[in-house]
Design a protein around this nucleic acid. Sequence first.
RNA 1: GCCGGGAUGGCGGAACCGGUAGACGCUACGGACUUAAAAUCCGUUGGGCUAACUGCCCGUGAGGGUUCGAGUCCCUCUCCCGGCACCA
Length: 824
Amino acid sequence: MVPRISSSRTGQKRSFLLCVFGRRTNVAMYNHREIEQKWRKRWEEQSLHQVRMDTEKPKFYCLDMFPYPSGTGLHVGHWRGYVLSDVWSRYKTLQGYQVLHPMGWDAFGLPAENDAIKKGIHPSVSTDENIENFKRQLHEIGAMYDWSREISTTDPQYYRWTQWIFLQMYKQGLAYQKEMPINFCPSCQTGLANEEVVGGACERCGSDVEKKHLKQWMLKITAYADRLLDSLKTLDWPEKVLRMQESWIGRSEGASIEFPLEGHDRRLDVFTTRPDTLFGATYMVLAPEHELVTELTAPGYKAKVEEYVRQAAAKSSVERMVSREKTGVFTGSYAINPVNDERIPIWVSDYVLVEYGSGAIMAVPAHDERDYEFAQTFDLPIRPVIADTDGTIPDLPFVMDGIMVNSGPFNGLSTAEGKERVTESLAEKGLGRAEVQYKMRDWVFSRQRYWGEPIPIVHCPRCGEVPVPEDDLPVELPDVERYQPTGTGESPLAAIDHWVQTTCPACKGSARRETNTMPQWAGSCWYFLRYTDPHNDDELASPEAIRYWMPVDLYVGGVEHAVLHLLYARFYTMFLKDIGVVDFDEPFKRLFNQGMICKDGAKMSKSKGNVVNPDDLVEHYGADALRMYQLFIGPPEVDAEWMDGGIEGIHRFIQRFWSLAMRSMEQQPALDSDQEKRLHRLIQTVTERIESFKLNTAVSAFMEYLNEAGKAVDRQSLESLTVLLAPMAPHLAEEIWARMGHTRSVFTAQWPEADPEKLVQDQATVAVQVNGKTRGTVTVAADASQDEVEQAAEGITAVQNAKGNKSVVKAIYVPGRILNLVVK
RNA sequence: GCCGGGAUGGCGGAACCGGUAGACGCUACGGACUUAAAAUCCGUUGGGCUAACUGCCCGUGAGGGUUCGAGUCCCUCUCCCGGCACCA
């Protein structure tokens, strides 16, 4: 019978368990509840998982992505990454590494604050409760976290250093204030970074994002654009994530071209990646928000242009994205093409984005799809200036590379050459230069919310913006009465007079504190450094600790952080390198993204009601069974469908493994050569499969071994087996290890190594094919000659049938694998 | 539209570098044990043909190709998932 998993702890379930594990328990059966409890307690008592620097030994830093301790707790989907990182941590421990495997809390953030608004509970109270619950659930996994290194971003001793880093950026001019239209979520009532806007909506709550003019703190991440892009090459990360970061940074090379304006002294600056198409520019377009729109609107066009600009401003970014129909108005003004002095009409249209490039473009409808569409709509001239490589004018718009035509002195040049030559010639005249643009913007770093790190700046009427002296850090969050965001662009902190009123660190006069807080990402940008030295009061971490432990050797987490957290953390690390805190550019050498666990074809979530609670499964089957099933469910990087019955197979495996171990200890059979070969093959296979993250097949390798090994194995085999299994099923392994007479933990043992000599097979099963079709197999000595195999193959009826009376014209023999007889 | 990834039994999945497709597990079915059930153990389980076989045919999304040999490589296409998307 498959036990029904109910989400509540009912008496019915208890009686079932009593029947299985209580009254009817016999000695031969593995009692996971007793045994797992025992070992978890013992590990804790012996501080087995506390790790120290030991420069004599190699280190391995295995990190899980910083969890936000949500109120809903863990479901089996969350387990997956934690199990994976723990298997690796334990595996590396057995290989003799000092393994740093820490855990902590990214505990600032909106859910706790929203809860506070609703229920009036202080965010720190609910955060502490959630952390307690999360910790209890993490303990269930049986992971080897070093809890002595636990950290929380909300701890003033932690955010002191988050603020300290901000101050260093401020000093370097990388943190600055700017009044600009930013993405603003009307529901969360706070500004958002570009990275937090997904398809025009708030990443967190899904509301349509508005543009709001606010004075914001910004971090100059764009100063690191090229470095962030270039060093992606050095990372052992999933291709997908590298691509996502690459396209997020969005580097493109081109030219900035200045168009003189008819009747004005100023010039109009545009960015293009296709300077070779300059002769095909038949109109210009300004974004509706472009600063020159008013100035360039000719008297008779004022009303229409103003109306258009007003409408564009009223459209939300969602509306603007959904409707792709080209709209626009003519300003009545003209620009002059710097290469041929042609008059070019200037239009205004919302298909040009104010935040990219210079917010204005030269339109070349013959060679750009968007410009083509616009020109068609408004009946503007379309002039081809690029021919296909064979010289013919292709269908328009033609956006590929080709040969320049209708381009005066540049005719005949290829696109690549043309780009260079046109740019050079403009540069000579002072009307252009080569330029690189990025899609990535500077990071909007302030939030108008309460539950975050206060930005350590004081505003003084005399001295202006003054950084809080480092010795005065942390600037602690005060208690407030109301957590309600004001929605006016000020955080709830603004209402706390006694906190806001302060003295200026420079002139000692009265001044006001900055009331914006940092975004949730701030704390997670450097937490991996803090784990190396979590109790340091003098520095964010000591240089020795950083040098020994960093960088992170294996970083495990979901792909949802592909750009946000991973890009910000890389930026912080590069900055910290520049100010001498660390000596490397990249914090995470190797990244592994585990797949999601789905139920009924959908991602598990409380709102869908399809969560599978691990607590109940641990109760029924044990943590080891759930751990192994998590591994067995499928390739760890691929999404997997949860099947309630699936864990049964693992449960049986564990029982069978236990029985094998108990019988082996009783009977103590001697080691025979078959058993020895089987063992070494297993050592080889399991090691390879852990190394290559094929944990699902590592589990099946054990099952195969068990199916073949018989009723009992010799002591040496059992010892090795126990060590091999220990990373996946640590409690079970400890118990067997102890029963074998060992007094120290199995994790002080050595990972076994396969002896190449024991891997050699003396017999081989060779498939026999006739014209490529397999007709049977023959078992021969591994070093059998082709003749011998051919001879043996004669004995197969199917081979005879297939050959008939045709003769063998060719025989292909792959030693030990296949014999293919080609007959005619 | 662009960039990734994928499609293998009833199900989850395996298959190193092109070499016995379906390992391992779930489910289902049959058997043993049991008063009975659970648990456990043994067997069968891609489809079809065949009285039987150690026999034959078909089969890795579709169609072509390369090769002695293709799930794997190449070309064309269909569908699914993820990311980006008026970025000049």
